[in-house]
Write a protein that binds this DNA or RNA. Structure first.
Length: 481
RNA sequence: CGCGGGGUAGAGCAGUGGAAGCUCGUUAGGCUCAUAACCUAAAGGUCGUCGGUUCGAGUCCGACCCCCGCAACCA
């Protein structure tokens, strides 16, 4: 990424379950940024990657349990995620699948490069292995002999594994973070990242193929397969030409990575170490979004019965309303409770009453008064200045990835329009046609800006709004719920 | 002393050193072009507690109290 190009990628969800509301948050946040930068830099200068992580023991076992051929199983979920993207207007440029033969080649190439740089070695390892975590766990981590995360007793394993010399990069990563304090957002997480780096140890990056047939074979050692994380993480550069097209890679990498709180160690440390080993630049930006909590402010769980399904929400309110709420009502960088009441309040207040209503007022008045609108020549300087300065403030918030703040400021801009029209009272008989022309053109200009700024957030409605404004057709864009 | 996140108006949240803000709700008024929408005003906050740094702290430091997550469908 540089000033001319913008590359953003989500994490790749693991395909052992249905898409949930957290995936929706991450995908939709990334989508907003991709859409914003497409408008700013041009479509050809933005690359938005999403996809699915399809290897690993959990998936292998789940497929068997459900009586699926492994390929059918992962295809089913990959398609599920594709449908999910379509449903929520996630405009990806690339849907990356780690079962794709191209990925397999690129991941192997990544391994070779790290290996040539002396960062991969083989070591006999014995210990307790948690299938859920897909890693060896230490005695210290266990509670009552069980993995605290998955509640199952780990399996005894004694095997030879390949290790990645992450410890080689400890000092370099600390230095990188020190020199680039702005790389991680939100900044409050910086200390946590630093601590994780300080605790770096070499990591196991392979499994025996006899235990795990569903993985990528290690180059020149077919008895071993990649540990799923090592394979999956490479997608971020593979998607933009690693091991295949140097110019392409040069154009896009380093990129912006968006991920959830449980992923900081992987995106912020392991992956950065891998990049360094492969001689690639560190990520340009790490955006850690928050958790979507249940309506009660607690983490969603089946037992608590507070799980919110993105599909149910879509059925109930429509995709754009859900999108709008995820982006505006849910904090961009911290945990937030998902409450339907808040969703309704925010939708009614900001979209129906403020933006939608203003749009309708202006269109209606321009027809009543027979005044041409959408004419920038009839704009008042002061008004334009006010609107433009708000617009540039909002754009800089976009570029600082502050999506919820962006949404709030757009709302304020629309509200400024409602105040203005109330103050000017263009419906009054005493207002001359010239005055009315000025007032309504000021407002149509403001509305165009609001529409343009809202476009990344609610792409479909803004399209309709623009058409209505241009054709001066009355429209109930957002029906009050 | 396990690790981490958080405590800001009735509710939900924003606010990383310089006049306490947003949405909803409540009360009173205005307007009537508009989706019973819009505008104005008011009420409502010791920014968890105590101490410290500073000309100045919700914002930095220390101690303490309380809530939440680390069990899942894991972002």
């Amino acid at each position: 990424m540089n000033n001319k190009n913008f590359y953003i990628t989500t994490t790749l969800p693991y395909v052992n379950a249905e898409p949930h509301i957290g995936h929706a948050l991450e995908f939709v946040q990334a989508d907003v940024l991709a859409r914003y930068f497409r408008k700013k830099l041009g479509k050809e200068n933005v690359f938005f990657n999403v996809g699915t992580d399809e290897h690993g023991l959990k998936i292998w076992r789940k497929a068997k349990e459900e009586g699926f051929e492994i390929n059918d199983f992962v295809n089913k979920y990959a398609n599920r995620f594709k449908d999910f993207c379509k449903l929520f207007f996630v405009s990806y440029d690339n849907f990356y699948r780690t079962s794709d033969p191209k990925h397999i080649e690129s991941a192997k190439e990544f391994w070779r490069v790290c290996s040539e740089n002396g960062d991969i070695y083989k070591k006999r390892y014995s210990g307790k292995y948690c299938v859920g975590c897909e890693r060896f766990v230490t005695e210290k981590e266990l509670i009552d002999g069980k993995c605290p995360e998955h509640g199952v007793a780990p399996e005894e394993r004694n095997e030879e594994n390949y290790f990645f010399r992450l410890s080689n990069y400890k000092e370099k990563l600390l230095e990188w973070l020190e020199k680039n304090p702005e790389v991680l957002k939100p900044s409050q997480k910086r200390d946590e990242l630093k601590r994780i780096i300080q605790e770096i140890e070499d990591i196991s990056i392979s499994r025996l193929k006899e235990n795990l047939p569903w993985g990528i074979e290690v180059p020149n050692d077919p008895e071993h397969v990649f540990y799923v994380w090592f394979d999956a993480l490479t997608n971020y550069v593979n998607a933009v030409g690693f091991g295949e097209d140097k110019n392409k890679l040069e154009k896009w990498w380093p990129g912006v990575q968006i991920f959830g709180p449980d992923n900081l160690r992987f995106q912020g440390v392991i992956w950065q170490g891998m990049l360094a080993s492969a001689g690639l630049k560190h990520s340009a930006k790490l955006l850690e979004h928050g958790m979507v909590l249940g309506a009660d402010g607690r983490k969603m769980s089946k037992t608590l019965g507070n799980v919110i399904s993105p599909f149910d929400q879509e059925q109930k309110f429509g995709a754009e309303v859900v999108r709008f709420y995820l982006l505006s009502g849910i904090s961009t960088f911290s945990d937030s409770a998902y409450k339907e009441d808040d969703l309704l309040n925010l939708y009614n207040s900001r979209l129906a009453n403020n933006f939608g209503n203003l749009l309708n007022r202006v269109i209606h008045l321009s027809n009543e008064k027979e005044v041409e609108i959408n004419n920038e020549g009839a704009l008042e300087e002061n008004f334009k200045y006010e609107v433009d300065s708000r617009v540039s403030e909002i754009k800089s918030l976009f570029e600082d990835f502050e999506i919820a703040l962006v949404s709030e400021k757009i709302d304020e801009l629309a509200n400024f329009g409602n105040k203005y029209i109330t103050e000017k009272e263009p419906w009054k008989k005493e207002v001359t046609k010239d005055q009315c022309t000025n007032i309504l053109n000021n407002l149509s200009y403001l509305l165009k800006k609001v529409i343009e700024l809202y476009e990344p957030i609610i792409p479909e409605s803004t399209q309709k709004a623009l058409i209505a404004l241009e054709k001066r057709e009355r429209i109930i864009l957002f029906k009050k719920i």
